[in-house]
């Protein structure tokens, strides 16, 4: 089981979403992807996409306007 961090700070929509999609594709089942974002609309569309795909998702607020979306690849 691997943990991968994806730095999307300073990136606007939809770049964090596309980057997260591409990254998760290369990962194995059980791996965890941590997407770092500071664009509030990515806070909505990245978890929405990951949940729809059936992965386990958690959002953590790191600082004012800064979040980590933790996605565990389940399939």
């Amino acid at each position: 089981m691997k943990e991968v961090e994806l730095d999307c700070l300073g990136e606007a929509c939809p770049i964090p979403l596309v980057k997260a999609e591409n990254k998760l594709k290369e990962m194995e089942i059980g791996d965890v992807l941590i997407v770092q974002i500071d664009h509030s609309c990515a806070m909505k569309n990245v978890p929405e996409w990951a949940r729809k795909e059936g992965h386990n998702v958690e959002v953590e607020e790191i600082d004012d306007g800064e979040w980590e979306i933790i996605i565990e690849k389940v399939k």
Partner: peptide, 18 residues
């Protein structure tokens, strides 16, 4: 709205492309 949700942040420029 941003201040009330304590979501205010001055973002860094990532690249000149931006």
């Amino acid at each position: 709205a941003t201040l009330l949700s304590s979501g205010f942040k001055i973002k860094k420029l990532k690249s000149w492309k931006q």
